[in-house]
Design a protein around this nucleic acid. Structure first.
Lengths: 231, 231
DNA sequence: CTAATAGTGTCTATAAGACAGTATACT
DNA sequence: AGTATACTGTCTTATAGACACTATTAG
């Protein structure tokens, strides 16, 4: 049986994850202090080697990386792209399959190891490898997909109000969203259901609480049209 | 210096290419007869092992694969996704970074080795590995991107008429395109320039010949809106 | 002149945005 | 009652599609 070119130098096969959340300070990306060379001590994306004995695929490896390194489970985990080349990792020719994940903002000690540092995506520290470029592409993807899909709901908790969700879209897209159109679209998508009777709101008229319908949980709703048109 | 887990079984790192063209019989995908195990003799996507000593990245490997196996150079070559797992290749745990390419229909003996077989995408023979799924995803991507970008121009030759280009969009999208809207959009994109004086057309009014402007060649024009609305 | 395709002008339908109104809480 | 926010009704504007008209060629 013919075999791969064993005479060739080994290719390092890794997975990296761009884990994003949204706080009052905008989109944040999870960074970890690397505990080993190369770049020991530096802040970098969670990642590591694929383990053929454990992982059933790179997606599985990415989920494992999240679990082991951040203590998180993200229901939304999607492949971004694969980065490769002889120079991106000083250890040798490497291939990194990159995933991105979106999670709701966490309570301060919500099981996440203290090692996780959240950094605003527009004020990142210098990152090792090609991680800066990877984050840039992840952001572009998230912003692009948010135009015509329900992606941003993964940045909300399980229950949310439409004004809250609108703010999330605005934060991700970086521009104002038309209130009337936004509500029309969310209605047309048919993806949300009101928690009847449940409202939240402090000093003024309380807002209806919604959640994603069972059938739509875990996957995205795609729209033919732009979901969040400008105001 | 810490090293990758050398005790782990090797991960096979490969590249596959979904090469598409458009003929009167619709979208066609390039298949090659495999000359070695596994699946020797079967029709499969062009692909092979990444060669760290030769390739500067997986994109480069994909371009090499195209060149070596089909004799073609495709100006449009984009990463589709990466497929991985223990079972997709009988030789072991593998990662395949898949690219897709679009080329104009070729003259019968335009340098392509005889080994290249073009098959209509909607009537493919059984394919080995996970190549059927890969082709499916490539088609979905191409159709999706054609909605709002100039992608289909890569299926035309260097010069084309607007009626021809409209037919290409219709073939890719699988639905009729509104003539007036189509011309409006192509005009607004500002990507095409007329070859003044050049027209083609047989028995009736000849059509203006166009080409992609220098500045837009090699890259896509993206539109905020749907490029090819229904008729 | 006819036929057939290329290309345009313009009306209509649809969808998005603006804006102002009503609704409902807390003070 | 006042005020601030939630939500809605409706007018205006922008964009897409339908349709018919003109343009240009061959025969």
């Amino acid at each position: 049986m013919p075999h791969p070119p064993v005479h060739s130098p080994t290719i390092l096969c890794t997975v990296d994850v761009v884990l994003l959340t949204l706080t009052a300070d905008g989109l944040q990306v999870a960074l970890l202090v690397r505990d080993r060379a190369p770049h020991a001590g530096a802040l970098a994306l969670p990642g590591g080697f694929v383990r053929p004995t454990e992982d059933s695929g790179t997606r599985d490896a990415a989920a494992r990386m999240l679990r082991e390194k951040t203590g998180l489970h993200s229901p939304y985990l999607e492949q971004l792209a694969t980065f490769s080349g002889p120079d991106r990792d000083p250890r040798g020719w490497s291939v990194s399959v990159v995933y991105y994940a979106l999670v709701p903002p966490m309570a301060p000690d919500d099981g996440a190891p203290a090692a996780v540092e959240w950094h605003p995506v527009d004020r990142l520290p210098p990152l090792p490898f090609d991680h800066a470029e990877i984050v840039r592409q992840a952001l572009a993807r998230v912003r692009s997909k948010s135009q015509y899909s329900s992606l941003p709901v993964h940045l909300c908790g399980e229950r949310f109000t439409l004004p809250q969700l609108k703010l999330v879209y605005e934060a991700v897209l970086g521009e104002r969203v038309n209130q009337v159109s936004f509500r029309r679209r969310m209605d047309e998508l048919g993806m949300l259901e009101p928690m009847v009777g449940e409202t939240v709101g402090g000093a003024h008229r309380p807002a209806q609480v919604w959640r994603v319908k069972e059938a739509f949980r875990g996957e995205l709703s795609l729209s033919e049209r732009v979901l969040a048109g400008r105001d």
